[in-house]
Amino acid sequence: MALRIVTADDRLSAAANKTTLVIVGESGAGKTTLVKALPEAETLFLDLEAGMKSVQDWRGDSIPIRCFEDMVVIASLIGGPNPAMPPTAFFSHEHYAHYAAQHPELVAMLARKSIIFVDSITDLTRQAMVWAKKQPEAFSEKSGKPDTRGAYGLLGREVIGLLKHLQHAPGKTVILVGILEKHTDEFGRTAWQPQMEGGKAGRELPGIVDQVITLALFSRDGDGALVFDPQRGTERRLVCTAGNRFGLPAKDRSGRLDETEPPDLRALLQKINSRPTKA
């Protein structure tokens, strides 16, 4: 067991170098293009939905990911070994060592990256569901027939485990992008939520990350105030704080963001990670 005391200066240094964000928005809002504001040499784009057409002029590195198993390998190499995991589990010392030996070029490249841009968590859960349906837990022990509940349970556990592993990646800012959808219940009440397979991952996601941000379209009223207008709005803004007047998902653990911010991720990260001035 490796226990150590973390000083205030250590915490401030770590806070200045990493954060975890989930950014959700409706399809077509321009979530993927947010990567253009990030430093190209320091950013790695994990492309799970083959959606880089809108940023084909962006000069940063990317890795196309077409199955959940590949995403697990990349996450292991990004986050390093988890000492709490048994030898046969994802993210264990043995799991990390095996794939680090197979892909030394990825290990070397990841060491140069400080920002991981994952597009998207929506497709991550879809890929995870395809994988989960093939596992023993997805079949009834008695009849051998597919067990949907078992597949969804496995999906939730493994996706949450992967996201937590990325959260603990040393020195890495992790940005998770996902689709935002409008949900209306049987009583006619509406709410906005991330589009993800299964309920567990979507419910626990806000508790894992530091920041929950919604990219939305707005118009202006006669007084110049922002009006949430997903159909006709032309002004893009990042909604950043809980209890916002638009009813959109948001959380600011840093306490440094305004209700809305410009859609500039470099400026947003600088504001989140700015060191407080000493009295």
Rank of each mutant, 00 (worst) to 15 (best):
G51F: 00
D123K: 15
S62I: 04
G233F: 05
R253V: 00
T173E: 07
K36V: 03
H95Y: 14
E204H: 12
E181N: 10
Y152Q: 10
V239E: 02
L110M: 08
A101F: 13
S254R: 10
K18D: 02
I65D: 03
G60F: 05
L226C: 02
E49V: 08
S254C: 09
Q56I: 11
A89G: 09
T125M: 09
I116Y: 07
P81S: 03
G171L: 10
P87T: 14
L44A: 06
S13C: 07
E40K: 14
L77Q: 11
E42W: 06
T277H: 11
R112P: 01
P81V: 00
N82W: 07
P39G: 13
F246E: 02
T214V: 05
C67M: 02
H103S: 09
L48G: 01
A37V: 02
S27F: 11
D223C: 06
Y99S: 01
L38Q: 04
R4I: 14
A41Q: 12
Q211D: 05
S219Y: 06
F90V: 15
P263W: 02
E105I: 15
G28Y: 08
L265Y: 06
M1D: 13
K145H: 13
A242W: 00
K182M: 01
R126L: 13
E42Q: 12
G188Q: 06
L205T: 00
K36H: 07
L257C: 08
R149M: 07
A267S: 14
G25S: 11
A29D: 09
D229N: 15
A132V: 07
Q231N: 10
A111I: 03
K53Q: 14
K172S: 05
G144L: 13
G60H: 07
A16E: 12
A191C: 04
Q231I: 09
P83R: 09
E186A: 10
F90R: 06
A14L: 15
L34Q: 07
V118R: 04
D258R: 12
E197R: 15
G80D: 01
R126A: 11
D9A: 12
V174I: 12
Q127P: 02
Y99P: 04
A100L: 08
A2N: 12
R4P: 05
P262C: 04
Y152C: 09
L162K: 14
M109S: 14
A242S: 11
V35D: 00
K164H: 02
N17K: 15
H168E: 11
D57M: 10
L176K: 02
G202V: 12
I65A: 03
V35C: 06
Q167E: 01
G79V: 08
P249C: 05
R266P: 00
A132P: 06
A108S: 15
